[in-house]
Design a protein around this nucleic acid. Structure first.
Length: 578
RNA sequence: GGUCCCGUAGCUCAACCGGAUAGAGCAUCUGCCUUCUAAGCAGAGGGUUACAGGUUCGAGUCCUGUCGGGAUCGCCA
């Protein structure tokens, strides 16, 4: 199973091969000029360049080789040597037939039997989750869903920040306060900023924090007991946020879980002279001859003997390899940590954890979320917006929108609340995921929750309209079942939708290879638009011609299933009505 | 200062290996609810892809330079 363009690329590739040309040049893609063709092949121009021939002549040779092929209704050469392709409707229909019966919509289970670890979320102990955690959480969760869809056995790890100096700051603050009673999230939220601030301005205070950090990392029983206590209360808070977002993790590990691997790792690096002393610290030199820029060494131990996040990140790789032996480890973290992970990855290769590129260490960095002023996102008061506040604002807006709409008035309160939640989450997730992962983006709350145009709620709305239509046609269950329609007759009304449905594997593949959810967002939006256009151009239920009506309903069902599937990849659920 | 990323419509952003007439959304304007949900649809206007060169059949995309913005550059994460 595959996409139309993949199948056509194969046909063209064979034609190119028959002419003694590289099969790869036969690549066929969806046409840039829908007014001229459905698909195009540009390979004749490249081939002609390499062979020093006339591109149109090469294109003609290709067409001659394909003469009489049943897939094509029209093949023609245009411009300098483009080959324009229009398919035979029966060929499209047959393809759609297979696609519609496939649970995977043509996506091959390439990852079967292979494991992938994804590192995302990254919340910190004792700190309220804020908007900075939003991207990591939803992009990482989306990538996990994408890889799962491709057949991989995925392990999502939240990788909490539970081991660094902040832990020492809190521990020492509690000691200074003489606090012995139970620790609550409120208490932690109150003392952490205070401790952090005083450590920043007071070196002596910082020394206390460092000492406490060291004590914890050395296994001091009292420090450990207390630390466990505030980890527990923190996790409860994190889970509330992740549950609200519908973000899932398979493992709730943290930096501290790397601890058991650190000592032997350091001993090993030292024994092999990979780690050396420098200015009192223990470092791994990771600079390589071809470097344009000086890559600083990775510090394993600070001069006071404490470990850093680079140490735990490196040791975590050992943990993950031992536990899962993954083919890839994907880090969904802030783009600004690029250099850090470059250092860690190099150290991992140097240490032999990565051999022959396995596991492949992938830095899937994401850009900063900025406010409408272009600067890092802040609340109106200038503070960091808490994640739960952001979700609450989206929810409030969704409720208000439901109030306005008469349709929701007759629904039970529970259903309306459920709809409001789904709308809010769809708005938040789509607003984020539709941006290219690696670039910064302007986070505009008003735009995101306007629910108009290219938004999550628009997609939900289109999906719900299809569902409602199918229900009225008495086909409510077909939406969940593979397409059974035996003969598809295409006409100008349904053909664009049919061709778009067949594109899915192409877009999925791009998202998978490049770790780019926005490609799927773009596709599902186009699909919803194409459906809406189709929906507006003809009346389906009152269509007198039974065969035409059946085809249109079949396309509706298929479109619904595909929108639902892509939305599920994005991590969004579709309500029954809205 | 070194390195990397970015600069596309009034605003926010797309554009797969270099492909044809650079696409969406918002905003503006014009139509469309007495048949399937108007959170919608159809259409219009809006561009020297920062600037200057270069490579070639073809450049938003590749190369060089200039200007502007951002990130980062060993004991925080």
């Amino acid at each position: 199973m595959s996409s139309l363009s993949q199948n056509l690329s194969k046909i063209f590739g064979e034609a190119f091969t028959a002419l003694g040309l590289p099969a790869a040049l036969g690549a066929v893609r969806v046409s840039d000029r829908p007014d001229l063709a459905q698909f195009q092949c540009n390979g004749a121009m490249s081939a002609a360049k390499q062979a020093g021939k006339n591109p149109r002549a090469v294109a003609q040779d290709v067409l001659d080789a394909l003469e009489g092929h049943a897939a094509f209704s029209k093949l023609e050469i245009a411009g300098p040597g483009f080959i324009n392709i229009i398919l035979d409707d029966a060929y499209i229909a047959a393809h759609l037939q297979v696609l519609g019966a496939d649970e995977q919509f043509g996506v091959a289970p390439e990852g079967a039997g292979q494991k992938i670890v994804l590192d995302y979320g990254g919340p910190n102990i004792a700190k309220a989750m804020h908007v900075g955690h939003l991207r990591s959480s939803i992009i990482g969760d989306c990538l996990r869903r994408i890889y799962t869809f491709a057949g991989y056995d995925t392990i999502g790890d939240v990788h909490m920040g539970d081991w660094g100096t902040p832990m020492g700051m809190i521990l020492s603050e509690l000691t200074l306060m003489g606090h012995t009673g139970p620790v609550t999230m409120e208490l932690l939220a109150e003392i952490y900023p205070r401790a952090s601030a005083s450590c920043k301005e007071d070196e002596a205070r910082m020394a206390l924090a460092r000492a406490a950090t060291k004590a914890l990392q050395d296994g001091d029983p009292e420090a450990t007991a207390r630390w466990r206590e505030f980890i527990e209360v923190s996790i409860a808070g994190m889970k509330a946020n992740f549950d609200a977002l519908g973000v899932h993790f398979d493992e709730w590990k943290g930096e501290s879980d790397a601890h058991p691997f650190i000592e032997s790792m350091i001993t090993d690096y030292k024994a092999r002279a990979l780690a050396v002393e420098s200015d009192g610290a223990l470092v791994v030199n990771v600079a390589e001859p071809g470097d344009k820029k000086e890559i600083p060494p990775l510090i394993l131990l600070k001069s006071d003997g404490a470990v850093l996040y680079g140490t735990t990140d490196l040791a975590t790789i050992i943990d993950r390899i031992q536990a899962h032996n993954p083919v890839k480890i994907i880090y969904c973290v802030d783009q600004r940590q690029f250099l850090h992970f470059e250092q860690v990855f190099r150290a991992a290769r140097k240490g032999g954890m990565v051999r022959d590129g396995r596991p492949e260490l992938v830095f899937a960095g994401f850009g900063t979320m900025n406010g409408t002023d272009g600067k890092p996102f802040k609340t109106r008061a200038g503070g960091v917006m808490r994640l739960e506040d952001l979700i609450a604002m989206g929810l409030e807006k969704a409720r208000a929108r439901l109030e306005e709409a008469d349709i929701a008035a007759d629904l039970a309160p529970e259903e309306r609340e459920d709809i409001a939640q789904k709308v809010a989450i769809a708005a938040i997730k789509f607003a984020d995921l539709q941006n290219p992962r690696h670039s910064d983006y302007i986070f505009d709350l008003d735009r995101m929750i306007s629910f108009e145009g290219k938004t999550g709620p628009y997609l939900l709305y289109q999906a719900v309209r299809i569902k409602s239509l199918l229900r009225k046609a008495g086909l409510g269950d077909i939406a969940a079942a593979p397409l059974k329609q035996s003969i598809l007759i295409l006409d100008d009304v349904v053909r664009p939708l049919a061709l778009l449905l067949a594109e899915f594997p192409d877009h999925f593949q791009l998202a998978l290879e490049n770790f780019t959810p926005h490609v799927l967002c773009e596709y599902v939006y186009r699909l919803a638009q194409a459906f809406s256009s189709f929906y507006g151009s003809c009346h389906i239920l009152s269509e007198p011609d039974e065969a035409v009506r059946a085809v249109r309903l079949a396309l509706c069902a298929m479109t619904y299933r595909q929108i639902e599937a892509v939305m599920a990849l994005i991590g969004v659920q579709i309500p029954e009505r809205m």
